[in-house]
Structures are given as C-alpha cells and as structure tokens.
C-alpha cells in the first residue's frame, strides 16, 4: 500500500513539473499565478499521501499550512493587480 501511495505522490510531482510549462509560457499573469496555486493543491495532495505512506502525521499539518497560504498568496496577487488597475484608471 505504501509503495502505491509513494508512486501516486511521484505522479503528482510530475504534474507539478508539467505545470511549470504553463507558468513560463503564461501568457496572462493569471495563468502564472494560478499555476502557483495549482502547485499548492497538488502539494497538499502529495503531502497527505506521504503522511500516510511514511506514517508521519506532522506532514498533514504541513499540508494544511500549504492550503491556507495558497489562499493568502493568491489574494495578494489579485489585490496587487486590482490596485494596479485602479491607479491606472485614477490617473
């Protein structure tokens, strides 16, 4: 069972690698940031799998932090973009 879980985590790692193509290609800023978010969700899943496979409960805490911080980064990104637009419109 644990081998299966580790292999699953490896596949998820591979999808992160593939997603990098979209980050570098863009073309929109949303694409890039969203991929960072995607890595968050995928990372959460991989961590949960590893926590079970290696029997390391603290990794579930790491996964929870990933999920919370992904929300923060994305929010700051959107704010950054929104303010940028405001300053352009206001000027």
């Amino acid at each position: 069972m644990s081998t299966f879980l580790v292999v699953s985590a490896l596949v998820l790692l591979a999808t992160i690698g593939a997603g990098l193509v979209r980050v570098s290609r863009g073309p929109t800023a949303a694409d890039r940031m969203l991929c960072a978010q995607l890595f968050g969700t995928t990372g959460v899943a991989a961590l949960l799998l590893l926590a079970e496979a290696y029997d390391r409960p603290p990794l579930r805490d790491v996964a929870l932090i990933f999920a919370i911080l992904a929300a923060l980064v994305l929010t700051v990104f959107v704010k950054h973009a929104a303010i940028h637009r405001h300053s352009r419109d206001g000027a």
Binding site: P27, A29, H84, S87, A91
Partner: peptide
C-alpha cells in the same frame, strides 16, 4: 506610485499581465 510601474510596462513590449 502606480505611474512608474505602468510606464515601465508599456515601454518594454513584454507580455506582463498578459
């Protein structure tokens, strides 16, 4: 502060912000 950011952007023809 928005202005510098904006001008920098339009000068380089890169695809920033898509």
């Amino acid at each position: 502060q928005g202005a510098g950011y904006e001008r920098g952007r339009s000068e380089s023809g890169r695809d920033e912000q898509g």
